[in-house]
Write a protein that binds this DNA or RNA. Structure first.
Lengths: 161, 161
DNA sequence: GTTGAAACTTAGTTTCC
DNA sequence: GGAAACTAAGTTTCAAC
């Protein structure tokens, strides 16, 4: 099977490589060649193309929680949809904020869902005051604090049947 | 400043390295040495120690949404806290599920918060039926579908002031 | 156009100071 | 920790398909 993505053609082998790399980006072409029916040099070529084409958007180190301590919260936000420029300014500030790990537009009662991670409750209050409470575009927001982080994995389910 | 984490001592330089790697895990020791007051060989040593000690829990490739299409949903779950073994079995199944990208215990009305990513609405219904609706431990759940993913970044705010 | 093997280059590791 | 020697991984070339 072949899929055309962003102008490039990807076959099953590309998806198998992507699926392995999204769990361990440091796998070498040799290690991948040991589990895939393709030579290391062909795999290395494909990996470079996948990174250059943007199919691999980034390669990142996931830090242990123990570099913390941290406090995380899920914040659901309801917006006033009036001043478009002000809305976009808020969206940009939230996206750019290093405290925001996850930022989604969602359906339902709330418009936005945020996962915010900060050092402690003081830092959370400072974040909420500065980013949300003081912004007229925010109608209201509700916070659920994270008691435990059981899983945080960016890996997408590629189900390579 | 020094912090003791998991038996190891980390200084400011370690945190500066961690902060750069959590945004780009493919930075070479040479590239890091260009922006940090430390030689490439010392940096390479530190990186290896950070990985071996578990301070860097994993290095992963983040795939572009365009390898999709995908459907994501935030699912909030309220639990019946009676049968402990059954609760733990559910938690294990959810953690192990490749469709679950984020899995949190939260405070408030709901007990669990999930970010679920699947191929399409049929796959979402199959997931919800199999994992949630059919489980007596789940009292109720509410789903918000993701209209847009604005940010999904595992990077922690290390604020190296 | 893609593969696989070999030459080449670059990055990581080890040794020594 | 830093520099140099060494090893390993990625890149390029090229012949073959």
């Amino acid at each position: 099977m072949f899929l055309h993505i962003m102008g490039a053609t990807r076959d099953t082998m590309d998806f198998r490589i992507l699926d392995l790399l999204q769990h361990n980006a440091l796998l070498t072409a040799d290690q991948l060649a040991a589990q895939l029916p393709l030579s290391a040099s062909a795999i290395a070529r494909r990996i470079r193309r996948l990174r250059e084409s943007g199919a691999i958007a980034a390669d990142v180190s996931i830090l242990s929680d123990e570099v913390g301590p941290f406090l995380s919260a899920v914040v659901q936000v309801q917006m006033d949809r009036h001043a478009l420029a002000a809305v976009e300014a808020l969206l940009r500030r939230l996206t750019a904020s290093p405290q925001v790990q996850l930022f989604l537009d969602v359906s339902g009662t709330f418009d936005l869902m945020l996962l915010v991670t900060v050092r402690d409750m003081d830092a959370f209050n400072a974040f909420a005051d500065e980013m949300l409470a003081s912004d007229p575009v925010v109608r209201r927001y509700e916070t659920s604090f994270v008691k435990r982080r059981r899983k945080f994995s960016p890996a997408l389910p590629l189900d390579l049947a």
